[in-house]
Simulated assay, not measured.
Amino acid sequence: MTNPNCISWGIAPIGWRNDDIPTIGADNTLSHLLSDICVAGFQGTEVGGFFPEPNILNKELQLRNLKIAGKWFSSYIIQDGLEMTKKKFTDHCRYLQEVNASVAVVSEQTYSIQKKEVSVYKNQPTFSDKEWDLLCTGINELGKIANAFNLKLVYHHHLGTGVQTLSNITRLLEGTDEKYVHLLYDTGHIFVSDGDYMPLLHTHIDRIHHVHFKDVRKEIMDLCKQEDLPFLQSFLKGIFTVPGDGCINFEEVYRVLLENGYNGWIVVEAEQDPSIAHPLEYALLARKYIDEKLVIHT
């Protein structure tokens, strides 16, 4: 069983500013974001699209004793081919190495409907067998590049993409090498996708090397599904929130992670409109839940 002190707790910048809709939270500066993270008692964050070059970012981090866990990378292996993707991913990993990150978060975006005005609940993209082979081969190669930079590639299953459900994730993991390809386990995305979050945790616990704690407001999820909303409209409506404010039992999730020796980052992530859900208020709410329901009970 993991010593809870081996867990690093972070919170993602997406509660302050959103890369998919840059106008949301645009007035929240890097200094504002990092200082809020300090006030809320978290140890670090992930790199947002608006973050600066490593030398500037490292100075801001050092002033606050914060760390970077990782950064999202949109791969287009099927659409653009492996060679172009490898070149871009190498630059991505170089940046992460310079900011002392531990993971490179990868999500295949070929055919993604995350930003499209179609129902995210009825239009999940699919890959042909040939495309699956290309994807698995390519992700393996990206994993080798990550290793060369002393990083772990963690694949992010995501609503609106071809790797969303437990069966999709299983196919990807079975088609890739466990030495190079690991899993980012996101409670919110798998719950909205499959209606449960524990089967994925139990099935692939040995491949999980990064975790997102994303809670779900079930009544809003049900409404979004009834209205066949797109992904962006769903999160603007409030489908996601921080742990303790939705329906997911994070005590159960945390217990399984510890019992199986997990010792990486757990990053609170909740896409919300910061003009409605005050970022610091929700960061403090998440920290209170973690301290009262998780950490002190281990």
Rank of each mutant, 00 (worst) to 15 (best):
F73R: 00
K86S: 13
A69R: 10
A104Q: 00
K88L: 15
K115L: 13
N65I: 05
Y111A: 07
G143F: 08
L33F: 15
K122I: 00
H157L: 01
I139W: 00
E83S: 12
Q79G: 09
K115E: 13
I139S: 04
D133I: 12
G48D: 09
H157P: 10
T90Y: 09
S31W: 07
W72H: 13
L57C: 08
N28P: 01
T29P: 09
H32K: 12
F149L: 05
L33C: 12
A104I: 10
D27H: 14
Y121W: 15
T126I: 13
C93K: 00
T45W: 00
F50A: 12
A148F: 06
Y155N: 13
G143S: 10
L142T: 06
Q114R: 14
Q97R: 12
V47C: 12
N28S: 09
N123A: 02
G49C: 00
S75L: 00
F51L: 06
D36W: 05
A148E: 15
I37K: 04
S107T: 15
C38Q: 15
D91H: 12
H32D: 14
K152H: 06
L153E: 02
G44E: 06
T45P: 05
P125G: 01
K116C: 05
K71N: 08
E131T: 11
T45H: 04
Y95T: 05
N65M: 05
G138S: 01
V99G: 03
V154A: 05
S31R: 04
N147G: 11
L30T: 00
I78W: 00
G49T: 05
E141V: 12
M84G: 05
S75R: 02
L82R: 10
H32Y: 14
I77G: 06
K130C: 10
F127Q: 04
R94H: 09
K86M: 13
V103F: 07
F89G: 03
C93F: 07
E108I: 03
S102A: 08
H156G: 03
G49D: 08
E60K: 11
E60S: 13
T23P: 04
K88R: 15
T126E: 15
E83Y: 04
F50M: 10
E98S: 13
I145N: 01
Q109R: 08
C38M: 08
G138F: 01
Q62I: 11
L63N: 14
